[in-house]
Amino acid sequence: MARAAALAAARSGRRAGAFSLGPALAVPAALLVAAFLAAPLAVLFRYSLNRYSPREFMIDAVTAENYIRFFTDAYFIGVLATTVQVAAVCTAVSLLFAFPLAYLLARTDSRWKSALVIAVVFPLMVGNVVRAAGWMAVLGNDGIVNHALLGLGLVTQPVRLMYTPFAVHVGIIAVVLPYMILTLQSVIEGIGRDVEEAASNLGAGPITVFRRVLLPLSLPGVIAGSTLVFILCMNAYATPVLLGGPQFKMMAPALYDQFVRTTNWPFGAALAFILMVSTLVLTVIGTTVLSRRMHHRRLEAAPR
């Protein structure tokens, strides 16, 4: 990959006959990608074709049995389905929550703006484990929420919130929300306020302005943010383990189990690959659908 980039750089340099730094600038990044992404992936993929034995740990082989095991086992399919469902819901919900906040941040003239941005970013500085511990204090049987519910007399027994899918969703959304907000904010900031004003001046109410102007123009941000967040959700580890409890299984904890608890590297590697590929495929599909929609709307609106 790096060589290809370097070659391309050399070739284009010669052809153009003019000095251009552009392609050469890509070389360090390409090298990094090759060293830190491609190589480990290659190793991982190779491992996934090996065979596991409890005594010999990993036996050299070229076999698809790890993949076959995954796809013929309803349990693992279920784990993947749960993962996709959690990721999709969390992405959608965080998009819904993030948009208004991002808009506010992007449009405010307040001198508190940088303080607000820091407030949004702040949770990112807290580790996932610490954060999950915080959620335990909030959602636990004698956590804040239950205290409030009991105190208000809304319930007579503590409601089980910890170790439920609900807790996982809440926890993951709290983790990914800042990413979504910041991505959307930077895109919305790039959309001139005057465009919204122009729409409003032409008779569009706030909802129409949002639907016809703001949303289509922020679609690149929606796509970028959703992609980023979806990938983060698909790979969530600490939150599902700590908030979902032992019964709740997503892909990352499952593959951790394989690597660490049973030292089954080949199957763990296969899980890792399946997680990666399904994330990639779903991201590509989602991105394509969204961009199509962006395109369609443009054509539909054409008065012909």
Binding site: M136, N141, V241, G245, P246
Partner: peptide, 14 residues
């Protein structure tokens, strides 16, 4: 079943 020893400890304490 608790996800960690600490979570179990909290449950015992509570």
């Amino acid at each position: 079943v608790y996800p960690s020893n600490e979570a179990l400890a909290a449950a015992l304490k509570g």
